[in-house]
Design a protein around this nucleic acid. Structure first.
Lengths: 217, 217
DNA sequence: TCATTTGTTTACAGTTCTGTAAACTGATGC
DNA sequence: GCATCAGTTTACAGAACTGTAAACAAATGA
């Protein structure tokens, strides 16, 4: 058997993590087999144990890296939306959602969390809420922080849902699976997020709700 | 070892499915071990093979039963909302969301789908969209079917997300894990769903969007 | 009461996977 | 060049799990 040249520890870890990420996307976190990862990375499986200690260690490291990358990308997209002109704001928000949907990071982050991996979820989410609130402050007057919290929660939950069973639900609802259809839904959602003022997001049922009811009839 | 009295096939299947459902909620579908299910159901594991053919057969049967039950409960809740008075409509919608969130069916349905189990998703979703559209027709004039589709999709994705990592995300966002906090979010979401007219759900960016922008500033 | 059917159990075979042990080898510094 | 360090591999141990085979026993009907 052809002996491999010695990688640096970083290179080896990166190669393993890359292979593991692809593998997780394919088979899910529970189906992750270190022998399969090793094969995909072109090495023998004990090498993974050597670098990450155990299968759990590998999953933990992947979760860590993935959470950081995903948060970085989403935060960058929101920051970009912050400096967008008013006309481009919906487009920028659509890009935020696209960023969250696209790539493997979202899928991997959710699946790893699903399988119990610990991440820096708290810090990551707070950062996104903070940026989102700045965006809402730019668009509307007197925005409420708790509403930002709820909106971020709604979108985040929807993103998680999209990752887990988005394709099946969209197909069941008659949405096409093509990129254009999915993009259309994201644009629709972006519009709602950008345009909803706090008036429409009131939490106390009584007054505001009645106002809206009257308005809508 | 004390020999068990013979159950009817239906009783045995039900007992196994009940145990499997509890087990799936605890450990997830990938962690489902037929030996553990058998132990929880008070029998030896080959008995499960005898009744369901294989582990896959058990999961398929559970997915089938769960999908039917969940759809039944949600459809009933929407039907109830259909005949609610205008004042009670938000409360009824909140109950719809509660119904979807509560109990084990939602969790099990999502987890089983997550692990690749086939269900009658298409028929179930269409039924829910149909009822939802009737509800929107009662509340607003000239409602668009595609918007109902999108709203149902958004809520469904959010429900899936809630099931998969709702607790962690809520905790990360500073929401309490108590029932009252979760109920509060659901009420907030119900209000949005009930009160959003098609004007606010416009899909073509240009005209309607500008109107809203002006209105909000 | 006896025979048949089928729910149920025990014992086991076969597979798969993680993690260990020891040896091997390429790289680095003296 | 030689020694040391660490990345890498082969071989293996041990555990866990699914599914099979055969026997057992409870219900049912004649």
């Amino acid at each position: 058997m052809a002996k491999k040249t010695h990688n640096s520890p970083e290179a080896a870890r990166d190669a393993i993590l890359d292979a593991a990420q692809k593998m997780v996307v394919e088979v899910g976190p529970a189906g992750l087999r270190i022998s399969a990862v090793a094969k995909a990375a072109g090495m023998a499986h004990p090498n993974i144990i050597h670098h990450f200690g155990s299968r759990e260690g590998l999953i933990h490291a992947l979760a860590e890296r993935t959470g950081e990358r995903a948060t970085e990308r989403i935060a960058a997209a929101i920051t970009e939306a912050l400096s967008a002109s008013d006309e481009d704001c919906v487009a920028a928000m659509t890009r935020v959602l696209d960023t969250a949907y696209q790539g493997e990071e979202g899928i991997v982050a959710v699946w790893l969390h699903f399988s119990g991996a610990e991440t820096e979820l708290h810090a990551n989410m707070r950062r996104i809420v903070e940026l989102s609130h700045q965006l809402r402050e730019r668009l509307h007057a007197d925005v409420d922080y708790s509403n930002t919290n709820r909106l971020v929660m709604l979108v985040t939950l929807a993103l998680v849902g999209e990752v887990v069973s988005g394709a099946a639900i969209k197909e069941a609802l008659g949405f096409g699976n093509g990129d254009s259809e999915r993009a259309h839904f994201r644009q629709w959602l972006a519009e709602i997020l950008i345009n909803l003022s706090d008036a429409e997001l009131a939490t106390s049922l009584t007054e505001v709700n009645l106002q809206l009811r009257v308005k809508n009839q």
